[in-house]
Design a binder for these strands. Structure first.
Length: 314
DNA sequence: TCTGGAGTGTCAATCAAATA
DNA sequence: TATTTGATTGACACTCCAGA
Protein backbone atom coordinates (compact mmCIF):
# COMPACT_ATOMS: atom_id res chain seq x y z
CA UNK A 1 0.00 0.00 0.00
CA UNK A 2 1.17 3.48 -0.86
CA UNK A 3 1.19 5.76 2.20
CA UNK A 4 0.51 9.45 2.27
CA UNK A 5 3.60 11.43 3.29
CA UNK A 6 2.23 13.50 6.20
CA UNK A 7 5.29 15.72 6.12
CA UNK A 8 4.31 16.78 2.60
CA UNK A 9 0.71 17.21 3.67
CA UNK A 10 1.81 19.42 6.57
CA UNK A 11 3.82 21.67 4.23
CA UNK A 12 0.89 21.90 1.82
CA UNK A 13 -1.43 22.74 4.71
CA UNK A 14 0.86 25.53 5.92
CA UNK A 15 1.19 26.94 2.38
CA UNK A 16 -2.61 26.96 2.09
CA UNK A 17 -3.00 28.61 5.50
CA UNK A 18 -0.23 31.18 5.07
CA UNK A 19 -1.34 32.03 1.54
CA UNK A 20 1.93 31.44 -0.31
CA UNK A 21 5.25 29.65 -0.46
CA UNK A 22 7.36 32.47 0.90
CA UNK A 23 5.20 33.18 3.94
CA UNK A 24 4.98 29.47 4.73
CA UNK A 25 8.74 29.09 4.24
CA UNK A 26 9.36 31.97 6.67
CA UNK A 27 7.09 30.54 9.33
CA UNK A 28 8.55 27.03 8.94
CA UNK A 29 12.12 28.35 8.72
CA UNK A 30 12.73 26.58 5.41
CA UNK A 31 13.47 27.89 1.98
CA UNK A 32 10.69 28.37 -0.53
CA UNK A 33 12.29 25.89 -2.92
CA UNK A 34 12.06 23.16 -0.30
CA UNK A 35 8.34 23.78 0.04
CA UNK A 36 7.93 23.99 -3.72
CA UNK A 37 9.61 20.61 -4.19
CA UNK A 38 7.59 18.95 -1.42
CA UNK A 39 4.40 20.44 -2.79
CA UNK A 40 5.14 19.05 -6.24
CA UNK A 41 5.84 15.69 -4.71
CA UNK A 42 2.46 15.71 -2.95
CA UNK A 43 0.71 16.81 -6.14
CA UNK A 44 2.37 13.89 -7.90
CA UNK A 45 1.14 11.55 -5.17
CA UNK A 46 -2.44 12.85 -5.44
CA UNK A 47 -2.25 12.81 -9.23
CA UNK A 48 -3.46 16.37 -9.67
CA UNK A 49 -2.59 19.97 -8.83
CA UNK A 50 -3.47 21.27 -5.35
CA UNK A 51 -2.84 24.89 -6.31
CA UNK A 52 -3.54 26.80 -9.47
CA UNK A 53 -0.59 29.07 -10.29
CA UNK A 54 -2.14 32.44 -11.11
CA UNK A 55 0.79 34.69 -11.80
CA UNK A 56 2.53 35.07 -8.49
CA UNK A 57 -0.40 33.78 -6.54
CA UNK A 58 -1.22 30.22 -5.51
CA UNK A 59 -4.96 29.54 -5.49
CA UNK A 60 -6.37 26.28 -4.14
CA UNK A 61 -7.92 24.01 -6.77
CA UNK A 62 -11.09 22.04 -5.85
CA UNK A 63 -8.80 19.09 -5.02
CA UNK A 64 -6.64 21.43 -2.94
CA UNK A 65 -9.66 22.80 -1.05
CA UNK A 66 -10.77 19.28 -0.24
CA UNK A 67 -7.26 18.26 0.83
CA UNK A 68 -6.99 21.37 3.03
CA UNK A 69 -10.25 20.48 4.81
CA UNK A 70 -8.97 16.99 5.55
CA UNK A 71 -5.62 18.43 6.63
CA UNK A 72 -7.44 20.79 9.03
CA UNK A 73 -9.01 17.82 10.78
CA UNK A 74 -5.85 15.68 10.64
CA UNK A 75 -3.56 18.30 12.21
CA UNK A 76 -6.17 19.44 14.75
CA UNK A 77 -6.43 15.83 15.90
CA UNK A 78 -2.64 15.68 15.92
CA UNK A 79 -2.49 18.64 18.29
CA UNK A 80 -5.08 17.01 20.53
CA UNK A 81 -3.05 13.78 20.56
CA UNK A 82 0.06 15.70 21.63
CA UNK A 83 -1.90 17.48 24.36
CA UNK A 84 -3.33 14.19 25.59
CA UNK A 85 0.06 12.46 25.52
CA UNK A 86 1.61 15.32 27.48
CA UNK A 87 -1.13 15.18 30.08
CA UNK A 88 -2.69 18.49 29.18
CA UNK A 89 -6.48 18.64 29.30
CA UNK A 90 -7.59 17.95 25.79
CA UNK A 91 -11.00 16.88 24.67
CA UNK A 92 -11.46 15.14 21.34
CA UNK A 93 -13.49 17.54 19.23
CA UNK A 94 -15.09 17.45 15.83
CA UNK A 95 -16.03 20.38 13.63
CA UNK A 96 -19.36 20.73 11.84
CA UNK A 97 -19.65 22.29 8.37
CA UNK A 98 -23.20 23.31 7.56
CA UNK A 99 -24.72 24.79 4.42
CA UNK A 100 -27.87 26.86 4.93
CA UNK A 101 -30.33 27.72 2.17
CA UNK A 102 -31.03 31.46 2.25
CA UNK A 103 -34.80 31.08 2.52
CA UNK A 104 -34.46 29.22 5.84
CA UNK A 105 -35.35 31.57 8.75
CA UNK A 106 -32.16 32.19 10.68
CA UNK A 107 -33.76 31.84 14.08
CA UNK A 108 -35.02 28.38 13.05
CA UNK A 109 -31.54 27.50 11.76
CA UNK A 110 -29.94 28.59 15.01
CA UNK A 111 -32.43 26.58 17.04
CA UNK A 112 -31.56 23.56 14.89
CA UNK A 113 -27.83 24.10 15.33
CA UNK A 114 -27.89 24.60 19.10
CA UNK A 115 -28.27 20.87 19.99
CA UNK A 116 -25.44 20.05 17.56
CA UNK A 117 -23.16 22.59 19.24
CA UNK A 118 -24.08 21.20 22.66
CA UNK A 119 -23.08 17.71 21.52
CA UNK A 120 -20.15 16.25 23.57
CA UNK A 121 -16.89 16.63 21.66
CA UNK A 122 -18.18 19.42 19.44
CA UNK A 123 -15.27 21.50 18.12
CA UNK A 124 -16.25 24.43 15.92
CA UNK A 125 -19.08 25.39 13.60
CA UNK A 126 -18.67 26.54 10.00
CA UNK A 127 -21.97 27.77 8.56
CA UNK A 128 -22.32 28.99 5.01
CA UNK A 129 -25.35 30.43 3.22
CA UNK A 130 -25.79 29.96 -0.52
CA UNK A 131 -28.18 28.77 -3.22
CA UNK A 132 -29.35 25.16 -2.90
CA UNK A 133 -27.59 23.97 -6.08
CA UNK A 134 -24.23 25.35 -4.94
CA UNK A 135 -24.59 23.90 -1.44
CA UNK A 136 -25.56 20.45 -2.77
CA UNK A 137 -22.52 20.49 -5.01
CA UNK A 138 -20.29 21.23 -2.01
CA UNK A 139 -22.06 18.56 0.02
CA UNK A 140 -21.50 15.96 -2.70
CA UNK A 141 -17.84 17.01 -2.92
CA UNK A 142 -17.42 16.41 0.82
CA UNK A 143 -16.83 20.06 1.73
CA UNK A 144 -19.99 20.21 3.89
CA UNK A 145 -21.34 17.71 6.42
CA UNK A 146 -25.00 18.67 6.03
CA UNK A 147 -27.26 21.17 4.24
CA UNK A 148 -30.33 22.64 5.95
CA UNK A 149 -33.07 23.39 3.44
CA UNK A 150 -36.79 24.03 3.12
CA UNK A 151 -37.12 21.75 0.09
CA UNK A 152 -35.79 18.28 -0.75
CA UNK A 153 -33.01 18.09 -3.35
CA UNK A 154 -34.27 17.94 -6.96
CA UNK A 155 -34.33 14.38 -8.32
CA UNK A 156 -32.66 15.63 -11.48
CA UNK A 157 -29.81 17.13 -9.45
CA UNK A 158 -27.33 14.42 -10.38
CA UNK A 159 -25.67 14.37 -6.94
CA UNK A 160 -26.03 11.34 -4.69
CA UNK A 161 -27.52 13.01 -1.61
CA UNK A 162 -30.20 12.02 0.90
CA UNK A 163 -32.94 14.20 2.42
CA UNK A 164 -33.96 13.61 6.04
CA UNK A 165 -37.26 15.25 6.96
CA UNK A 166 -36.81 17.21 10.21
CA UNK A 167 -40.39 18.36 10.63
CA UNK A 168 -42.95 20.79 9.32
CA UNK A 169 -44.51 24.05 10.30
CA UNK A 170 -47.87 25.65 9.47
CA UNK A 171 -47.75 29.08 7.91
CA UNK A 172 -49.48 32.25 9.13
CA UNK A 173 -49.90 35.61 7.45
CA UNK A 174 -48.69 38.69 9.34
CA UNK A 175 -48.67 42.43 8.66
CA UNK A 176 -47.71 45.65 10.40
CA UNK A 177 -50.55 47.45 12.24
CA UNK A 178 -51.53 49.64 9.28
CA UNK A 179 -51.78 46.81 6.72
CA UNK A 180 -53.36 44.50 9.30
CA UNK A 181 -56.20 47.03 9.81
CA UNK A 182 -56.64 47.32 6.06
CA UNK A 183 -56.72 43.61 5.16
CA UNK A 184 -58.00 41.81 8.27
CA UNK A 185 -61.67 42.31 7.53
CA UNK A 186 -62.90 39.66 5.13
CA UNK A 187 -59.65 37.60 5.26
CA UNK A 188 -58.75 35.77 3.03
CA UNK A 189 -60.98 37.31 0.30
CA UNK A 190 -59.59 40.72 1.33
CA UNK A 191 -56.16 39.70 -0.03
CA UNK A 192 -57.11 40.49 -3.65
CA UNK A 193 -54.50 43.03 -4.79
CA UNK A 194 -52.87 43.09 -1.32
CA UNK A 195 -49.08 43.70 -1.36
CA UNK A 196 -47.35 40.37 -0.68
CA UNK A 197 -43.78 39.62 0.34
CA UNK A 198 -42.92 36.11 -0.85
CA UNK A 199 -39.96 33.76 -1.02
CA UNK A 200 -38.52 33.30 -4.51
CA UNK A 201 -39.71 30.46 -6.75
CA UNK A 202 -36.69 28.34 -5.69
CA UNK A 203 -37.98 28.13 -2.08
CA UNK A 204 -40.09 25.10 -1.20
CA UNK A 205 -42.74 27.29 0.44
CA UNK A 206 -43.46 29.44 -2.60
CA UNK A 207 -45.35 26.92 -4.73
CA UNK A 208 -47.53 25.96 -1.74
CA UNK A 209 -48.46 29.64 -1.17
CA UNK A 210 -49.19 30.16 -4.88
CA UNK A 211 -51.49 27.12 -4.83
CA UNK A 212 -53.26 28.51 -1.75
CA UNK A 213 -53.97 31.80 -3.54
CA UNK A 214 -55.50 29.88 -6.47
CA UNK A 215 -57.67 27.82 -4.10
CA UNK A 216 -58.85 30.99 -2.33
CA UNK A 217 -59.50 32.66 -5.71
CA UNK A 218 -57.49 35.73 -4.75
CA UNK A 219 -54.72 37.33 -6.72
CA UNK A 220 -52.52 39.51 -4.50
CA UNK A 221 -49.90 41.91 -5.81
CA UNK A 222 -46.29 40.73 -5.38
CA UNK A 223 -44.53 43.62 -3.62
CA UNK A 224 -41.25 41.73 -3.19
CA UNK A 225 -39.57 38.36 -3.69
CA UNK A 226 -36.72 37.34 -1.38
CA UNK A 227 -34.31 34.46 -1.16
CA UNK A 228 -33.24 35.74 2.28
CA UNK A 229 -35.87 35.11 4.95
CA UNK A 230 -34.37 37.70 7.32
CA UNK A 231 -34.52 40.51 4.77
CA UNK A 232 -38.09 39.55 3.89
CA UNK A 233 -39.08 39.80 7.54
CA UNK A 234 -37.50 43.26 7.90
CA UNK A 235 -39.43 44.43 4.82
CA UNK A 236 -42.63 43.07 6.38
CA UNK A 237 -41.95 44.78 9.70
CA UNK A 238 -41.45 48.08 7.85
CA UNK A 239 -44.89 47.77 6.28
CA UNK A 240 -43.77 46.89 2.76
CA UNK A 241 -46.27 44.05 2.48
CA UNK A 242 -47.99 41.05 4.06
CA UNK A 243 -45.57 38.47 5.37
CA UNK A 244 -45.97 34.67 5.49
CA UNK A 245 -44.37 33.38 8.70
CA UNK A 246 -43.85 29.85 10.01
CA UNK A 247 -46.12 29.27 13.01
CA UNK A 248 -43.07 28.29 15.05
CA UNK A 249 -41.90 31.92 14.79
CA UNK A 250 -45.23 33.50 15.73
CA UNK A 251 -44.18 34.76 19.16
CA UNK A 252 -40.93 36.16 17.77
CA UNK A 253 -42.69 38.13 15.00
CA UNK A 254 -45.33 39.47 17.38
CA UNK A 255 -42.93 40.41 20.16
CA UNK A 256 -39.80 41.57 18.33
CA UNK A 257 -41.39 43.11 15.24
CA UNK A 258 -44.77 44.14 16.69
CA UNK A 259 -46.53 42.56 13.72
CA UNK A 260 -50.12 41.38 13.85
CA UNK A 261 -51.67 38.09 12.73
CA UNK A 262 -54.08 38.28 9.79
CA UNK A 263 -54.85 34.58 9.69
CA UNK A 264 -53.52 31.12 8.88
CA UNK A 265 -52.77 29.94 5.34
CA UNK A 266 -54.80 26.76 5.89
CA UNK A 267 -53.17 23.75 4.29
CA UNK A 268 -49.88 25.52 3.56
CA UNK A 269 -47.06 23.67 5.28
CA UNK A 270 -43.35 24.33 5.20
CA UNK A 271 -41.06 21.36 5.60
CA UNK A 272 -37.47 21.43 6.78
CA UNK A 273 -34.84 18.97 5.64
CA UNK A 274 -31.32 17.99 6.62
CA UNK A 275 -29.60 16.83 3.44
CA UNK A 276 -26.55 14.61 3.75
CA UNK A 277 -24.20 12.83 1.38
CA UNK A 278 -24.55 9.59 3.32
CA UNK A 279 -27.72 7.57 3.78
CA UNK A 280 -26.86 6.58 7.35
CA UNK A 281 -25.49 9.63 9.11
CA UNK A 282 -22.45 9.01 11.31
CA UNK A 283 -21.41 12.54 12.29
CA UNK A 284 -22.47 12.86 15.98
CA UNK A 285 -23.35 16.56 15.74
CA UNK A 286 -25.53 15.99 12.66
CA UNK A 287 -27.27 13.11 14.43
CA UNK A 288 -27.90 15.34 17.46
CA UNK A 289 -29.23 18.09 15.19
CA UNK A 290 -31.69 15.76 13.45
CA UNK A 291 -32.95 14.12 16.63
CA UNK A 292 -33.47 17.44 18.44
CA UNK A 293 -35.01 19.08 15.35
CA UNK A 294 -37.59 16.31 14.95
CA UNK A 295 -38.55 16.66 18.59
CA UNK A 296 -38.62 20.48 18.50
CA UNK A 297 -40.55 20.86 15.25
CA UNK A 298 -43.06 18.18 16.17
CA UNK A 299 -43.62 19.78 19.58
CA UNK A 300 -43.89 23.22 18.00
CA UNK A 301 -46.49 21.94 15.56
CA UNK A 302 -48.62 20.17 18.19
CA UNK A 303 -48.38 23.24 20.49
CA UNK A 304 -49.46 25.41 17.58
CA UNK A 305 -52.40 23.11 16.87
CA UNK A 306 -53.57 23.64 20.44
CA UNK A 307 -53.34 27.40 20.06
CA UNK A 308 -54.98 27.32 16.64
CA UNK A 309 -58.32 26.53 18.20
CA UNK A 310 -58.47 30.17 19.19
CA UNK A 311 -56.16 32.17 16.91
CA UNK A 312 -54.94 35.43 18.33
CA UNK A 313 -56.73 38.07 16.27
CA UNK A 314 -56.60 41.62 17.43
C1' DT B 1 7.92 51.73 -21.25
C1' DC B 2 11.36 50.59 -18.08
C1' DT B 3 12.96 48.95 -13.72
C1' DG B 4 13.26 46.84 -9.36
C1' DG B 5 11.17 43.93 -6.03
C1' DA B 6 8.58 39.92 -4.83
C1' DG B 7 7.02 35.30 -5.59
C1' DT B 8 7.64 30.94 -7.76
C1' DG B 9 10.02 27.09 -10.44
C1' DT B 10 14.06 24.31 -11.70
C1' DC B 11 18.35 22.17 -11.05
C1' DA B 12 22.68 20.56 -9.13
C1' DA B 13 24.94 19.67 -4.91
C1' DT B 14 24.98 18.25 -0.18
C1' DC B 15 23.56 15.92 3.98
C1' DA B 16 21.59 12.37 6.89
C1' DA B 17 19.25 8.19 7.69
C1' DA B 18 18.08 3.66 6.18
C1' DT B 19 19.34 -0.54 3.96
C1' DA B 20 21.95 -4.23 1.76
C1' DT C 1 30.98 0.24 4.33
C1' DA C 2 28.86 1.40 0.04
C1' DT C 3 24.60 2.54 -1.90
C1' DT C 4 20.08 4.41 -2.02
C1' DT C 5 16.57 7.58 -0.93
C1' DG C 6 14.47 11.61 0.69
C1' DA C 7 15.01 16.26 2.41
C1' DT C 8 17.23 20.49 2.10
C1' DT C 9 19.94 24.33 0.30
C1' DG C 10 21.61 27.94 -2.81
C1' DA C 11 21.92 29.83 -7.31
C1' DC C 12 19.63 31.30 -11.06
C1' DA C 13 15.73 32.11 -14.29
C1' DC C 14 11.16 33.47 -15.13
C1' DT C 15 6.83 36.03 -14.41
C1' DC C 16 4.07 39.55 -12.54
C1' DC C 17 3.13 43.92 -10.57
C1' DA C 18 3.70 48.58 -8.90
C1' DG C 19 5.86 52.80 -9.33
C1' DA C 20 8.77 56.13 -11.75
Amino acid sequence: MEWLNFHHLFYFWRIAREGGLSKAADSLQLTHSTLSAQLRSLEGFFGGPLFERRGRRLVLTPLGEQAALYADDIFRLGRELVDTARGRVAQRTRSLRVGVVGSMPKSVVYRLLEPAMACPGFGSLYARQDHPAQLLEELAAGRLHVVLADAPPPESGGQRVYAHLLGESDVLLFADARLARQYRKGFPASLADAPMLLPTAQAGLRSAIDRWFIEQRVQPRIAGEFDDAGLMRVAGARGRGLLPVRSALRAEVEDAHAMELLGPLEGVVERYYAISAEKRIKHPAVLALIEAARLQLELGRSRKRTRATGPKVK
